[in-house]
Simulated assay, not measured.
Amino acid sequence: MIKLEHVSKTFDVNGRSVQAVKDVSLSVQKGEIYGVVGYSGAGKSTLVRCINFLEKPTEGTVQIAGENLASLSTKNLRLTRRKIGMIFQGYNLLKTATVYENIALPLKLEGLSSDEIKVRVEKYLDIVGLTEKKENFPAQLSGGQKQRVAIARALAHEPEILLSDEATSALDPDTTEAILNLLLKINRELGITIFLITHELDVIQRICDRVAVMENGQIVEEGSVLDVFTKPHHPTTKRFVGSEASFEIPADVLEKYKQTGKLVSLHFIGEGSDEPALALVSRKFDCLPSILAGGIDHLKNDTLGKLLVHLKGDEVEYNKAIDYLREQGVVVSEVQHNG
C-alpha cells in the first residue's frame, strides 16, 4: 500500500543544507497499522509529509498502491491524495465553523452534492461518536472531541490510508486511550491502512502491527512490535523500551543487587505469561529468583508480561536457569552493569 525507496529530504535553512530524512526505505501492507517512533527532531514529521507529497522528497520514490507519486500529473496527484487522509496534533479546525461545517466544507470543495455531503458527514460523525455535537463550535469541545472531529473530517473523504502526525501527544492519558481505541475500530471495521508517527512508545505498543525507530533522519531499527519490544538492538530502541529504567528502581538499589547476583529482564509473551516457568527455577536449579518489579503490557494482538528479576546462584546454575527459561519461551536479557 505504501512503499518508500531511498527517500531523502533536504531543506535549505539560511543558506545551509539540513537533511531531515536520510535514505529511508520501508513498506506498509494494506490494512496494517505501522508506527514510526523517535525523539523530537528525528525527522518523523517530515517523513510522514513525504508520503502524501506535502513535502516532495529530494531523492527517492514514494509509491501509493503501486503508483509513483513523482510521475503523476498535478491532476492525478490531487486524485491520489484523496486516498490519503491526515490527522494532526493541532486538529486544524476552522474556529468559526461548526463541527458539521468543518467536515462538510472540504467535501464541498471536492465537488460533492449536498445530499452526498450530508450522508458522509452524518456517517462519520456517528463513527467517531459526535452526532450530538454537530452544531457546536470547536471552542465548545474538549481536546479529545476536537481530535474526533479531525478524524471524521479525514474519513469523510473515504481514504484508503490514514496518516497520523502525533495525533495523541496533546491529549491526557484517558483521552489518548479513547482515540487509540477509535483508530483500532477504524482499522478493523473500515479496513483503512494507518501510518502514524509518535514519540510515545505506549501508542506504538497499543495499536501497531509493526514499528520503525527513527533517529537523525534514519530508520535505525524495524520489525514487529513484539520483536522490537522484547529484543531491541539499537541503543535508541533500548532507550525507548528501557529495562530496569522502565520500572523506576533506584540506581543504588539496582547496583546492590548486581553485586550479589545477576539481574535479568524477562518477557513472557502471550500464553507464555501464564506458565509458572520462573516459579520452577528454584526447584530445578540451585538458583534463587527474586522479583524486583513487573508489569503487563497489552499489545494490539498479544499480551506481554515483564519482570525484573534478581537471580542468586553460581555461574553454572545461573546459566542452566537461563537456558531453561528460554526453552519455555521466555525472552531473557541480562541487565548490564553500569561501567
Rank of each mutant, 00 (worst) to 15 (best):
I207W: 05
E132W: 12
I87W: 04
V21D: 05
P159H: 10
Y324I: 12
R120C: 01
G191F: 15
P232G: 11
V24D: 10
Y39N: 15
G38K: 01
K312W: 06
F11R: 08
D297S: 13
T10K: 01
Q336L: 15
F11H: 10
S73E: 00
I194E: 07
K134Q: 05
F195W: 02
R148F: 08
H157N: 04
R148T: 09
R239T: 02
L292S: 02
K95V: 15
L54C: 02
N216C: 02
Q89K: 06
L125N: 06
L109I: 14
G242T: 07
L163G: 01
L201M: 15
N216G: 09
V48P: 10
C50L: 03
G129I: 01
H199Y: 01
E248P: 08
T303E: 05
A245M: 11
P276D: 02
N102T: 10
I161D: 13
S282G: 03
L155Y: 00
T303D: 01
L93K: 08
E177I: 01
E244V: 14
V241N: 02
A139G: 15
G111H: 03
E215P: 05
E248V: 10
V7I: 07
V332M: 04
Q205E: 13
A154L: 08
D297A: 13
E32W: 05
D12N: 10
G329F: 13
L196V: 04
Y257W: 12
E222S: 11
T236L: 11
A20M: 04
E177V: 05
V203G: 00
R49A: 00
E248R: 13
D227S: 14
E215R: 06
G305Q: 00
D12S: 09
E135L: 05
K262S: 08
G129N: 03
R81A: 00
L107Y: 09
V37T: 10
A97Q: 11
V335I: 13
L311Y: 09
G261P: 12
N68P: 07
D314I: 14
P235L: 12
Q63I: 02
L307R: 11
R283G: 03
Q19H: 01
N102L: 06
V62G: 01
